[in-house]
């Protein structure tokens, strides 16, 4: 009995930690959906680029060895700016053509980004320079300080996004643009600027999620983001697309469910639990728990 409770609580903890990482990515994806109105299949590549950039900056390849936190911040900023560039080059020229061309284009963009990176660095698995740590345990459950740090960074990011959306002018204009772009424009909001800043935040959040994921589940390959994309989709749609707070809750549910499933059902189907949640949401409540915007 004690062993069962210990294992259950431990699984919940891992689920919460993974869920917090998913939430960073899911919020990023959902924010950009809010203003651009298409599901970006290239979003996973921002995770990949974040992880690889942090890797290069913190020790491999470029002759730099920044501390990982610094490398992460630089990676988030660079990938954020890169996201703005990607939207300028690939998506903005199509913005008046409806959602389908954008959706299909995002698949093309995903291929370009992923395989350009693969061509440059190869498919061998890489690992961020993180120390091996002994878990800190209380009553037989616990986690490593590193995983705890990942959780705290993710939670801090959520709080930051909450403050941004609720208290800053940018956040208010983002919500206004997401709610009704034409109305926002008439009200004098520079919606193009809002869209650009949203891309920055969205891609930056993706990069951060990529680094956190790489810390949790080293080693990784150039396909890491694309493979994790479905998990992020599941969280995003569960929360109701376009709803940042819904995405946070959805991410925690998906993270916990994946870990429970892996522990108690079958360890081979980790991703499939996220798929199953996704399909369940689509079947029974396609607008998600917070009432999505489609």
């Amino acid at each position: 009995m004690v062993a069962f409770v210990t294992q259950f609580v431990q699984t919940l903890i891992y689920g919460l930690i993974e869920g917090s990482v998913i939430s960073v990515g899911a919020v990023g994806l959902t924010l950009s959906y809010g203003v651009t109105r298409f599901i970006n299949f290239a979003y996973g590549e921002f995770l990949t680029y974040g992880a690889y950039l942090a890797l290069f900056l913190s020790g491999a390849g470029l002759g730099l060895s920044l501390p990982l936190p610094v490398a992460t911040i630089v990676a988030v900023l660079v990938v954020g700016a890169f996201g703005v560039g990607v939207s300028r080059v690939f998506f903005e020229p199509l913005s008046d053509r409806g959602p389908l061309p954008l959706l299909i284009t995002s698949i093309g963009v995903a291929f370009i980004l992923r395989y350009a990176l693969t061509a440059a660095v190869g498919v061998s698995a890489k690992q961020l320079p993180v120390p091996l740590m002994r878990p800190v345990e209380v009553f037989g459950v616990g986690t490593t300080p590193l995983r705890a740090a990942v959780f705290l960074v993710a939670i801090a990011t959520m709080l930051l996004i909450h403050v941004l959306l609720t208290y800053t002018m940018l956040g208010k204009t983002m919500r206004a643009t997401s709610g009704n772009r034409n109305l926002a424009e008439i009200a004098g909001i520079d919606t193009d600027g809002v869209v650009r800043r949203t891309w920055f935040i969205s891609a930056g959040a993706g990069a951060l999620a990529g680094v956190l994921y790489a810390v949790l589940f080293a080693p990784f390959r150039p396909t890491v983001g694309f493979e994790y994309l479905i998990v992020i989709f599941a969280a995003t749609l569960l929360g109701g697309i376009g709803r940042p707070y819904g995405a946070m809750i959805g991410a925690i549910i998906v993270g916990v469910a994946m870990n429970l499933g892996t522990t108690y059902l079958s360890a081979e189907y980790t991703m499939a639990y996220a798929f199953a949640i996704l399909v369940g949401v689509l079947l029974f409540k396609p607008d998600g728990i917070a009432g999505g915007e489609i």
Partner: peptide, 25 residues
């Protein structure tokens, strides 16, 4: 150019991605 076995196969998929983007646009 990078010297590894996945270089040429990767470029092939970059071209396929570009093709999708360009045709749609």
């Amino acid at each position: 150019l990078p010297d590894h076995a996945s270089f040429v196969p990767s470029l092939r998929f970059v071209v396929i991605g570009l093709l999708i983007v360009l045709v749609i646009r």
